[in-house]
Computed example of a mutant assay.
Amino acid sequence: MTTLKAQITDDMKTAMKAKDKPRLSTIRLLQAAIKQREVDERIELDDTQIIIVLDKMVKQRKDSIEQYEKAGRQELADQEQFEIDILKTYLPQQLSAAEIEQLIGDAIAQTGASGMRDMGKVMGLLKPQLQGRADMGAVSGLIKQKLS
């Protein structure tokens, strides 16, 4: 079992013992998403792949918060934010803006990117380094600024 998977399982046991139902519910959702991906792809997920699942779940909840707030359903938005806070405890430390800028600059230099047509090369190089450590949508916007 990977270290992140073991940590999630241990946290689930702790939440069960503490009778922390909201936290337990979120951890079970995470475990179900991991298990679903493992069954679908017939593989055992490693920490990197679990981070991708976590990233996707956080993004889905951010989208839900936006929709709930538009509909005036603040209690549902608050629930989604609570789940995001729990999921983020399993993600690696977020990079600062300066660190992201540095990585983008390095990737552009390394790929020799000169225009928008090279954006895929830059993103392909950066995605493994930044997955779970930065908002990829924001990173994409920064790359577009630098390449245009």
Rank of each mutant, 00 (worst) to 15 (best):
D46T: 06
S64W: 00
D46W: 01
S148I: 13
M12P: 00
R117P: 00
A33F: 00
R28I: 06
Q31A: 08
T26C: 14
M57K: 15
F82R: 13
D40T: 15
M116P: 01
L130G: 05
E75P: 00
V39T: 09
L142D: 14
M119C: 02
T111K: 12
G115A: 08
T2E: 08
I108L: 10
L103S: 09
K19W: 12
A32L: 09
L76F: 03
S25N: 06
Q102T: 08
E99R: 11
L147Q: 02
A113D: 03
K17V: 11
M57V: 10
E83G: 08
V58Q: 07
D10E: 15
A18H: 08
I51G: 03
Q93Y: 10
D11T: 04
R28P: 00
G120I: 02
R28C: 02
T26W: 00
T26P: 00
R23K: 12
V122I: 03
P22H: 13
D106I: 05
L130W: 05
K146H: 05
K144T: 13
Q67E: 10
M16G: 07
L91A: 11
R73I: 10
I86F: 08
L24E: 14
L126Q: 14
S114Y: 07
D55K: 13
D10V: 08
I34K: 07
